[in-house]
């Protein structure tokens, strides 16, 4: 019976150490730096030539008024902004149905010396806001929080 209790205590201690260790790793290990799903236009601009030619994800807001869509050739050009910096994006094919001015987006592709981001995949990033449409309200307003609120909390 006593060896039984001893074994149980041992298991308990080991479990505790594993749990505590995992927490410490998360808190102190600096994982946060490696878990960015996308880069902001400011970050990508700052990387400069270092980022050229590599496949990266760029995220931000579709700069209002920047969308140029050619339905005949399925050619899409727009700028992604984080409020401070803007990057020109070129994409082929029809975008997801919620794509529009002011919408949050993440594009996967390559940035080059031509300062144009060639997008291979375009994703919409929806904010945590859910609103019923109100008469006279501009839909873009809801996406201001997407960039400003980005990791601010």
């Amino acid at each position: 019976m006593s060896s039984d209790t001893g074994r149980r205590t041992a298991v308990f201690v080991i479990a505790g150490v594993i749990v505590a260790g995992a927490f410490a790793y998360l808190m102190l290990g600096g994982i946060e730096d490696n878990l960015e799903y996308f880069k902001t236009p400011a970050e990508l601009t700052q990387l400069g030539p270092e980022a050229y030619g590599k496949t990266v994800r760029l995220g931000g807001q579709v700069a209002p008024g920047s969308v140029k869509w050619d339905a005949a050739s399925l050619d899409l050009r727009f700028r992604v902004t984080d409020g401070a910096q803007e990057i020109e994006v070129h994409s082929k094919g029809a975008p997801p149905q919620m794509f529009r001015d002011g919408m949050g987006v993440v594009v996967i592709g390559r940035y080059g010396a031509g300062k144009v981001f060639e997008s291979k995949e375009l994703m919409i990033r929806h904010s945590e806001e859910y609103r019923a449409p109100k008469p006279g309200e501009r839909p873009q307003e809801m996406y201001r929080s997407l960039i400003k609120g980005e990791k601010a909390s």
Binding site: E32, E36, Y37, F38, M123, E128, S153
Partner: peptide, 10 residues
Amino acid sequence: WWRTLHQMQS
């Protein structure tokens, strides 16, 4: 904690 595609909690 991290920059995600998924939105934050509403």
